[in-house]
Amino acid sequence: MQMICRFRKERELLYRSAQKKLKLPGLQNKIANLLGDIGIKSFLSLSETDEIVEQALRNNFFYHEEFAFSSLNDTWRYIEGKMQETDCYLLVDTDWQYCGAIVVDKEFRLSDDFNFDDVVCDELRFFSREGDKVATVDFSNSINDDTYTCSYTEYEK
């Protein structure tokens, strides 16, 4: 039974890796518009990325907050403030499932010119490399009402 589960997981990783060729150009465009060339180091492998997500799901949190912003500038200041001086992994939309997490340096700056609609993006997740905090942005676009819902969670160490 364990061999079958391992085989399924390996097969899923192979499928996801094959999809990377289709997803990567769009993800690179999102990242270039979001961060430029500053702060990006590399991509994690899919198995490394899966481990980060699985670890976060196993962690017990001791603090959580959510806010909604109508201004992109306010959204970015919130995220940068929460993740200030923190080396991060960035997971974008569902692209991370095929391309892996992006390794981002603590000096990262989010572009005020970023447009979620233009790059077809609606979800950003910043995981601290220490695994002790996560900040998220979910973009929702309705007629004349762009809303950025942010959350911040700290986990027990």
Score class of each variant (00 low, 15 high):
I143D: 11
S128W: 10
Q55T: 12
R77T: 13
L72G: 00
F127T: 04
L57D: 07
N33W: 08
E154T: 04
L27A: 04
H64V: 02
R109M: 15
S17M: 10
E51A: 10
D146L: 04
L72H: 08
D122V: 07
E65H: 04
A101N: 08
Q97C: 02
L13S: 08
V134R: 06
V119T: 11
S70K: 09
A68N: 14
Q97P: 00
I4K: 10
D138C: 07
Y78C: 06
T147A: 08
Q19T: 03
L44G: 00
S17Q: 13
D122P: 01
K20W: 03
I143R: 14
R8V: 14
N60A: 09
V120M: 09
L72Y: 11
F127M: 09
E156D: 09
Y89T: 01
F67G: 00
A56C: 05
D145L: 15
Q97W: 07
S151V: 09
F116K: 13
N29T: 04
D93T: 09
V120L: 12
E65V: 00
M3V: 09
E10R: 10
S45P: 01
K20A: 04
T49P: 02
F116M: 05
V92N: 01
C88Q: 12
F108K: 14
D37K: 14
W76Q: 00
S17C: 01
Y148D: 00
E65K: 02
E107T: 13
L110G: 10
N115D: 05
F43R: 13
F126S: 00
Y152T: 01
D50K: 10
D132M: 09
R58K: 13
T153G: 05
N115H: 03
T136G: 00
S45R: 09
E54G: 00
V53F: 09
V92F: 06
S140M: 14
V137H: 04
S111D: 02
E156P: 01
F127K: 08
M83C: 09
D118I: 13
K21D: 11
N115G: 01
T75A: 06
W96Y: 15
A101I: 05
M83S: 02
